[in-house]
């Protein structure tokens, strides 16, 4: 399975939790805390649930809400994906 990109993650965030309207673009957001981008833990949970629906990949809720930046969340999701059969 191909890796999830930052652009795809942003698209999932916007579709699931709404556009944050904070002006942070995907390309310069990798290490920006989600709180500064405009997303809270519920937004991450909703987004992860939609990604799970699309890809079948599941991540632990606790690990999910501990992801503070898009880079950390992408690592989490892509590690889970690579473990998929």
């Amino acid at each position: 399975m191909s890796k999830l990109t930052i652009e795809e993650l942003f698209q999932a965030l916007v579709e699931s939790a709404g556009e944050a309207e904070t002006g942070v673009t995907p390309s310069d957001s990798l290490d920006v805390p989600f709180a500064d981008i405009g997303y809270d833990s519920l937004a991450l949970m909703e987004t992860a649930a939609r990604i799970t629906q699309r890809t079948g990949v599941t991540v632990d809720d606790q690990q999910l809400i501990e992801a503070e930046t898009p880079r950390q969340l992408l690592d989490l999701l892509n590690t889970a994906m690579s473990g998929q059969p």
Binding site: V14, A17, G18, E19, A20, E21, G38, L42, A43, E46
Partner: peptide, 8 residues
């Protein structure tokens, strides 16, 4: 409304 408030 801000777009973040709509899905919720």
């Amino acid at each position: 409304l801000p777009k973040r408030l709509l899905p919720q």
